[in-house]
């Protein structure tokens, strides 16, 4: 089973790296860019699990290690299997 986890800063937290990317895009003439938020992406391969087990395991791993819940939020999905 393959899962994908996206971690990004919470909307309430300033994202200076996202701001820098936005500024570069503006400099390059992409004036329609209103905002940029950046984050991290994980693709994790799991031994075949029941969907229910994955639903327990993935948020646990994300909260414990992959994201810092004080500043970050995450979403995840099963992309294979």
């Amino acid at each position: 089973m393959k899962i994908r986890i996206l971690v990004s800063l919470k909307p309430s937290v300033l994202d200076p790296q996202g701001q820098a990317v936005k500024n570069v895009l503006h400099t390059l003439g992409y004036k329609s860019v209103k905002d940029v938020r950046q984050g991290k992406f994980f693709e994790i391969e799991l031994e075949s699990l029941e969907r229910q087990e994955a639903e327990k395991l993935v948020p646990e791993m994300a909260n414990k290690v992959l994201a810092n819940p004080i500043i970050e939020k995450f979403t995840w999905e099963i992309i294979e299997g």
């Binding site: 800063l9 300033l14 200076p16």
Partner: peptide, 10 residues
């Protein structure tokens, strides 16, 4: 309590 973000000037 709290967390660290990247420095404001990157």
């Amino acid at each position: 309590p709290g967390a660290m973000l990247r420095n404001k000037n990157l």
